[in-house]
Design a protein around this nucleic acid. Structure first.
Length: 684
DNA sequence: TTTAGGG
DNA sequence: CCCTAAA
């Protein structure tokens, strides 16, 4: 689209809330990005966190008291799932892909692969209201052809696929993460074998690499007593004391506050509302974490569980506190899963064949005692010891892929890709947050009898490799009753303890559907591209403000579940693109004129003053921008008009540029000369 | 944080 | 526009 109209620029009298320079600079400072290059948390991790939590919830739910083999199996799988989801350093991101068919598919996929496969977010995306969304791990798919596997189900039925599962697991711990006013609990793994200072310490990269554990670690079996208590279990398991931690450790959890980028306050500043739900920002580490998470690319949740960023509970809103207690309670029930993972740790970690379904491996002979301890532990919890035999044949599973329910998203055509991404992200988060459970499929059929043993069901080690499948399916029990008519679709809901979705930049727009968002300007999930809100009201900018039209999402559970083959991602995946490059905003002639005028007056080398003088209200123009623009202006003025590109700058302006440049260069030279003179005089 | 300059 | 050294 061509800019038809010039920017109405601020110094002409437009009143735009000035952006705090400090934040702006902080954001712009490259050092920050660099410094935290490793501290990314990708969308996938977020999903993992959510899913991990839910799976855990499910796992420890007292309601499922029976300890049938099936239940055990699910528990084990749950462990693996949540572990794996947080394990991979997949640089995933919600991407939109147009495969050239009528179907538009959106994938959560690896950055490096999306484009590789010819899927570009630049392609036209939102041309219909009913988008067919697929969550796919592109990196796990050799090519687009395989992806079409998912597509061929058509708009209504395509499956959402998420991630690969491998079965490599280590110890773990759970922690809290706040996304805006959402609070999630995340299960994270922990290198048990590491030195305490290594595994537990919070470095500057608190949010960084928690998954770089290459070697599976086998835990020694702990006496049940250890498993019973939260605190007692943690120490030996995780060695998580934090010697030089910059984080206070007076609490049991980690509270990470995600705040939005400063850009989000553009248009209207909401300094207070933004903070409403957050804990009082406290001590040392908080700022860093906050920054890291605000950097739009998150990696993995902080791994230390015994540290907390904030120490005051009293300031929490009641509902918040309640939530926290709730989580804390859950945590204490979640010790045993960690141990159970040992069970899984033995299965081969390396499987990169893109098979489908899962694999059975005989496991009866290995590491009997350790695993038995954990397994028995879980069974004891259910009150049954009878089924447990030390030499029981174990079925070893390797889940290579798992399906998640289908997502349907409705979004106006006028929405931008950026908002679409956010929307998908939110939908994904919501769908995972709405409650999932693991379904078991045998020979394509769902196994519903939870009480049957694996043997009875036919899930034995003699089984075929692909006979067994797993899927994630909506969990009706976790859905808000009011929003769940029958077993119908589950909706996004905002005021559940689960991930809360917010729609950014929604200036007073009513969200259709269930979400009533208190703080529309807080964007804690996406904040991708167009968070750079332009305060200068050009027609382009207003039209680009798509997020205003964000609508509520409706997610429909998939009826159609089938595992797609996926290949595990490499652990050291390429760093996803760091902080998003700012969108390009060509200078309008008006702006150029303002710039020239200011430079004529102030000279080159005083860009901050230039900024203040002429661009104070254009918060998207930094003094660096102005300096750069001047640089290019000078260059433009020197080249022939034929070589120039973009909106033509009047020759008159270019002449002034050259004149001013010459003048101030001369001045500068004079200054330098004088200084030199002074210096030599002193020396002599 | 700003400036200056290369990429 | 980004990144950074240097001030």
């Amino acid at each position: 689209m061509v800019l038809q109209k010039r920017l109405d620029y601020g110094f002409n009298g437009y009143q735009v809330p000035p952006m705090p320079r400090a934040t702006r600079s902080a954001r712009r400072r490259g050092s920050f990005k660099k410094k935290h290059e490793g501290n990314q948390m990708c969308a996938f991790d977020l999903l993992a966190i959510v899913a991990g939590k839910l799976l855990l919830d499910k796992e420890s739910a007292p309601s499922s008291s029976d300890t049938s083999a099936d239940e055990d199996q699910r528990a084990v799988i749950n462990s693996a799932v949540k572990n794996e989801w947080q394990d991979e350093e997949k640089s995933l991101k919600v991407e939109a892909c147009n495969q050239g068919s009528a179907d538009k598919n959106i994938y959560v996929s690896d950055l490096s692969h999306v484009h590789q496969q010819g899927c570009s977010s630049k392609e036209s995306l939102v041309t219909q209201n009913d988008l067919n969304l697929g969550l796919a791990s592109a990196l796990t798919k050799p090519d687009c052809a395989e992806r079409s596997n998912a597509e061929r189900f058509g708009n209504g039925q395509s499956k959402c696929e998420i991630g690969t599962l491998a079965s490599k697991v280590e110890g773990g711990s759970s922690e809290y993460i706040e996304f805006g006013d959402c609070k999630l609990e995340a299960e994270t793994k922990r290198a048990v074998k590491d030195e305490p200072h290594k595994s537990g310490m919070v470095q500057s990269s608190t949010v960084a690499n928690i998954c770089n554990l290459e070697d599976p670690v086998v835990l020694d079996a702990k006496p049940p007593a250890l498993v019973g208590s939260d605190s007692s279990a943690k120490v030996p398991l995780c060695g998580n004391h934090i010697p030089n931690s910059s984080y206070p450790t007076n609490q049991d959890d980690v509270n990470v506050v995600i705040r939005d980028d400063d850009e989000n306050s553009s248009g209207c500043t909401h300094p207070i509302t933004t903070k409403k739900f957050f804990r009082p920002a406290p001590r040392i580490g908080d700022r860093r974490i906050r920054k890291i998470l605000a950097s739009k690319y998150w990696k993995v949740a902080p791994r230390l569980k015994d540290a907390t960023v904030s120490n005051s509970d009293r300031d929490l809103k009641p509902v918040f506190r309640k939530r926290q207690n709730c989580y804390r309670h859950q945590r204490s029930e979640r010790i045993y899963p960690f141990k159970k993972r040992k069970h899984f740790a033995y299965s081969s970690p390396s499987n990169s064949d893109g098979g489908m379904g899962c694999e059975f491996v005989s496991d009866s002979s290995q590491k009997g005692s350790n695993e038995d301890a954990s397994v028995s532990c879980s069974r004891m919890r259910g009150g049954q010891h009878t089924s447990f035999l030390p030499r029981d044949s174990h079925v070893k599973l390797r889940i290579k892929s798992i399906s998640v329910p289908e997502l349907l998203i409705e979004i106006p055509e006028s929405s931008t890709v950026g908002s679409l991404k956010r929307t998908v992200m939110e939908a994904v988060t919501a769908i995972l947050g709405s409650g999932l459970r693991v379904g078991v499929l045998l020979q394509g059929k769902k196994v519903r009898e939870d009480n049957k043993t694996l043997q009875q069901t036919g899930i034995s080690r003699n089984n075929k490799l692909d006979a067994l499948g797993f899927c994630l399916e909506p969990n009706p029990s976790q859905m808000p009753p009011s929003l769940c008519p029958g077993d119908s679709p589950f909706f996004l809901q905002c005021d559940t303890p689960q991930p809360i979705l917010r729609y950014p930049h929604t200036t007073g727009v009513v969200h259709q559907g269930i979400c009533a968002v208190p703080e529309p300007h807080v964007n804690n999930l996406g904040n991708y591209i167009e968070s750079d809100h332009d305060s200068a009201p050009s027609p382009t900018d207003t039209s680009m403000d798509k997020s205003t039209n964000s609508k509520a999402l409706v997610a429909v559970p998939a009826m159609n579940v089938e595992a797609l083959a996926v290949i595990p991602a490499h652990r050291k995946s390429k760093r996803s693109e760091m902080a998003q490059r700012r969108i390009r905003r060509p200078f309008s002639v008006t702006e150029v004129e303002a710039l020239v005028q200011a430079v004529e007056k102030l000279g080159t080398g005083r860009w901050r003053d230039v900024k203040l003088r002429a661009f104070d209200n254009a918060k998207h123009r930094t003094y660096v921008d102005l300096k750069d623009k001047w640089k290019t202006l000078v260059h433009t003025a020197r080249i022939s008009p034929q070589q120039r590109r973009g909106e033509p700058v009047p020759q008159e302006l270019l002449d002034r540029v050259l004149a001013a440049h010459a003048y101030w260069s001369q001045q500068q030279a004079k200054q330098q000369f004088k200084h030199q003179q002074a210096g030599t005089c002193l020396l002599i």
